[in-house]
């Protein structure tokens, strides 16, 4: 009797395990997010803040954002939207670059699938509408958006982001065109 019970239990366990394994086979393979492809949540040393760690995905995106801002200011094609960045603040104070870099980096992190960050800014439509955002002097057009995307591509290339991932970033930015371009 005892042996029979033991056999029954072993049989049930085997059925359960087989069932679980077959369930696993049915699951669709998980596609990594763009954030994960850029390094994801792996912690690395933050070159901007000695002694601190930063998620590799965020570091990659922040580097692209900073380079993009640099390109925009240097090339001067859409600088009219970003001139306050060139205002010098007192030694040790938070700069305009730091504020914009954080906001854009948060936005890109959330947009590419990061889980540990939030974007607290305006939605893209309101952020680019002078009636709702006094910081927007004028509505941006398709040409401005093209220049912005080109600047992001240059920023990404400067940081050796692979071409296929730059393409994915481009797709995300293109999806925002309808909200950003308002004239």
């Amino acid at each position: 009797m005892y042996k029979l019970k033991k056999s029954l239990w072993l049989f049930l366990c085997a059925v359960c395990i087989t069932g679980m394994m077959s369930c696993g086979d049915d699951e669709e393979p998980v596609t990594p997010t763009l954030y994960e492809k850029l390094g994801g949540t792996t912690k690395v040393a933050d070159p901007a803040n000695p002694g601190q760690m930063i998620e590799k995905g965020r570091l990659g995106l922040r580097s692209v954002v900073d380079s993009t801002i640099f390109v925009i200011v240097g090339e001067g094609k859409i600088t009219q939207y970003f001139t306050p960045l060139l205002t010098e603040v007192g030694a040790g104070n938070t700069t305009g670059l730091a504020a914009l870099s954080k906001s854009l980096t948060d936005f890109f992190c959330v947009g590419t699938g990061a889980k540990n960050f939030t974007y607290a800014g305006k939605n893209m439509k309101d952020a680019h509408d002078p009636a709702k955002n006094p910081r927007m002097a004028l509505k941006s057009d398709n040409g401005d958006m093209d220049i912005f995307i080109q600047s992001v591509v240059k920023g990404a290339q400067q940081n050796n982001v692979p071409a296929n991932l730059i393409g994915e970033v481009g797709v995300i930015l293109e999806s925002l065109r309808a909200d950003v371009v308002q004239r």
Binding site: D46, A48, N49, I54, R58, R62, D66, I69, F70, V73, G74, L85, L86, E88, V89, G92, N93, T94, T95, G96, L97, A98, A99, S101, K102, T105
Partner: peptide, 10 residues
């Protein structure tokens, strides 16, 4: 801020 004190100059 990640890079609190980075300033741009042109």
């Amino acid at each position: 801020y990640d890079n609190n004190h980075m300033q741009l100059v042109k």
